[in-house]
Design a protein around this nucleic acid. Structure first.
Length: 586
RNA sequence: GUCUCAGUAGCUCAGCUGGAUAGAGCAGCCGCCUCCUAAGCGGCAGGUCGGAGGUUCAAUUCCUCUCUGGGACACCA
């Protein structure tokens, strides 16, 4: 529709330039937008005002010239010049129903585009350390990332969803040791649990599993385990130093092979739990990428070598540094420490090299806002490796702060005092969670009020939208039980002659769905879809309340139900993109 | 210190990517179920879009400065 009118305006401009009414060489970008106020028609263009200056003429004069030069079109009922020089376009009712034909023809595909069909895009999200179950803070990144991925796919992109498993590093060692100590307790040992170890219930569960699977294989006496260790924090020592000493002791007693075995049990248990959890949240990945694999495949070395060859590395005080300041970073970054260990950042560099080498045109990272400072250095590394940093898009997600009523819920993974995503789903339900998380822009702060999300009231927008869908289903089911049948052709014809404001508003809103999906994709803003659905539901509820559907008058009946059927389809399509169910009844 | 997000109705937030008279929900008040789901609808009331400049025919929207508040980061994974 917009494109059609843009084309008409372009044709008019060409004519006017040819006959000398407008100067040559003007090449304005033609903007056609939806009007906010329907007395201004359906669509409007500001073209005359943008031309006023280069053409050195009064905008209303230009508007008049353009409307006169506009080629004939059977979708326009009239045009008007209004305000400072807007050209308002009024669409004929008959062509407004075209959107319904599209909906019925494309059904679940309606709103999808092929805009991005040439692109292979990877979306990496959540990627929480596998040291414990996901908590509500991860939920937002999960919902956001999944929805972004689905919206990109809806626009034709070939999307791969990926979870980067941080299975290397000290945090994982701490997990392994935490499991080991709980296991020792089950073997009968008694001791004070380290301040810095993981204390959650899940650690007991994994320990039990280890005990069942390996019996006494990893068992040692408390004396062997705790002999000559530094003091833990509660005893006046340092908790970091203490836990490191416990890790070292664990490795020493078990030997590296057994330690890895134990480590793997913990990692696998938690990774599988996370996978299962996300799947229950409606999110499935194509790839679970192991950080450790980067070392074993040699990608880390390969990446560092490449930087070395490109002259981006140097040595200082025994450490190897990446000269990221050459690419706009505040300071250079260590990639390899004096003891030979590569840093987390080195893995990140290798990981991104690996991503591009896998052939993705675009890579989208959904990160927690605390990773904010990494963007510059990662982009720097990408550029140094010889890739275009523009191909990486990083979207930051602010943490959601959880409230129970007015009380803030404190969370810490280490202390085990957190609300897990699984608990949240159990309490609030998948649909409300998924919707709630994406109603606000990702980089905005969000308070997640449990009570509100749980409440089955109109405070809760997800029910409002689902209810609109359920209402339509209910009408259709009643229709199905009646002697009447839906006649779409009649419905479309009658709607084409309609002058009803609510009907026109609904048709207009339906027509806006495809561009909403497109905007949501290009800006990575799923909240646009959520807002759109709220508006559509609102307009439908208004319509429903003032127009009875199942009536004797066949013309009106078919018109109303035809329109409602279209609304139902679009509600279902939109909700599906957000990972929310569209229930038949509520 | 650096970065980042926000400031719009009493509260929570939209504002369609610069347009015409700034919108919802909640809270308050008044109405609507002999009728397909009242988890709904209509109405009333409520505003110096934090402030000051700038760009523009046009600024809540873009730029600069400033005030207030939230958050993150500072050779660590």
């Amino acid at each position: 529709m917009k494109q059609h009118i843009t084309g008409l305006i372009q044709a008019a401009l060409d004519t006017l330039v040819q006959n000398g009414s407008l100067p040559k060489g003007i090449s304005p970008s033609i903007m056609v937008e939806n009007t906010r106020d329907k007395s201004h028609g359906d669509l409007a263009s500001n073209i005359a005002m943008t031309l006023a200056k280069p053409a050195r003429r009064n905008p209303r004069e230009i508007a008049t010239l353009i409307t006169q030069a506009l080629p004939a079109s059977d979708i326009l009922s009239k045009t008007e010049i209004a305000g400072p020089g807007f050209i308002n376009f009024f669409i004929t009712s008959a062509s407004a129903t075209k959107v319904l034909e599209d909906i019925f023809e494309q059904t679940t595909e309606f709103g999808c585009s092929t805009e991005l069909s040439a692109e292979k895009i990877q979306v990496e999200f959540v990627s929480a350390n596998p040291t414990g179950p996901l908590h509500v803070g991860h939920g937002r990144g999960a919902a956001y990332g999944a929805t972004v991925a689905d919206i990109l796919a809806a626009n034709g992109a070939q999307v791969s969803r990926e979870y980067y498993v941080n299975d290397a590093g000290r945090q994982m060692d701490i997990l392994a040791v935490s499991v080991w100590l709980r296991y020792l307790e089950q073997c009968g040992a008694s001791f004070v649990f380290p301040a810095n170890a993981y204390k959650g219930q899940y650690v007991y569960d994994i320990a039990e599993q280890v005990k069942a699977q390996y019996s006494d294989k990893f068992s040692f006496s408390s004396e062997q385990v705790f002999a000559e260790l530094p003091l833990d924090e509660p005893q006046g020592g340092d908790k970091e130093r203490y836990i490191d000493a416990v890790i070292a002791r664990c490795r020493q007693l078990l030997g590296e092979t057994a330690f890895q075995e134990l480590f793997q049990v913990g990692l696998t248990a938690i990774r599988d739990d996370i996978r299962d959890d996300l799947s229950g949240f409606g999110i499935d990945y194509q790839e679970w990428f192991s950080e450790r694999s980067l070392t074993s495949t040699g990608d880390v070395d390969k990446a560092l070598n490449r930087l070395q060859e490109n002259g981006n590395l140097y040595e200082k005080e025994g450490n190897i540094w990446f000269k990221s300041t050459d690419f706009g970073d505040d300071k250079d970054r260590v990639v390899k420490r004096a003891n030979g260990a590569t840093t987390y950042f080195a893995s990140d560099i290798a990981y991104h090299m690996n991503k591009f080498d896998r052939g993705f045109d675009k890579v989208v990272n959904i990160w927690g806002a605390d990773h904010h400072g990494y963007i510059t250095r990662v982009k720097a590394a990408i550029q140094a490796l010889g890739y275009d940093p523009q191909r990486l898009t990083v979207k930051l997600v602010q943490f959601a702060i959880l409230y129970r009523g007015s009380e803030r819920v404190q969370m810490s993974t280490r202390s085990g005092s957190f609300v897990t995503l699984r608990e949240l789903r159990g309490e609030v339900g998948k649909d409300a969670c998924r919707f709630f998380y994406v109603t606000r822009k990702a980089d905005n702060h969000m308070d997640f009020d449990l009570e509100l999300a749980k409440s089955q009231s109109k405070d809760n927008p997800v029910y409002y939208i689902q209810y609109a869908h359920a209402r339509i289903c209910s009408v259709l089911s009643k229709l199905n039980d009646s002697e009447w049948q839906l006649d779409l052709a009649t419905g479309l014809r009658v709607l084409g002659d309609s002058t009803d404001d609510a009907e026109k508003a609904l048709l207009n809103q339906l027509a806006r769905y495809p561009e909403t999906i497109k905007n949501a994709a290009t800006n990575y803003e799923p909240h646009l879809v959520a807002n759109y659905l709220k508006e559509l539901a609102s307009e439908f509820h208004t319509y429903y309340n003032s127009n009875k559907m199942l009536i004797e008058d066949a013309e009106l009946r078919n018109a109303r139900i035809t329109l409602s059927t279209g609304v139902k389809q679009v509600l279902a399509n939109g909700l599906s993109l957000l990972g929310v169910d569209a229930p038949q009844r509520m």
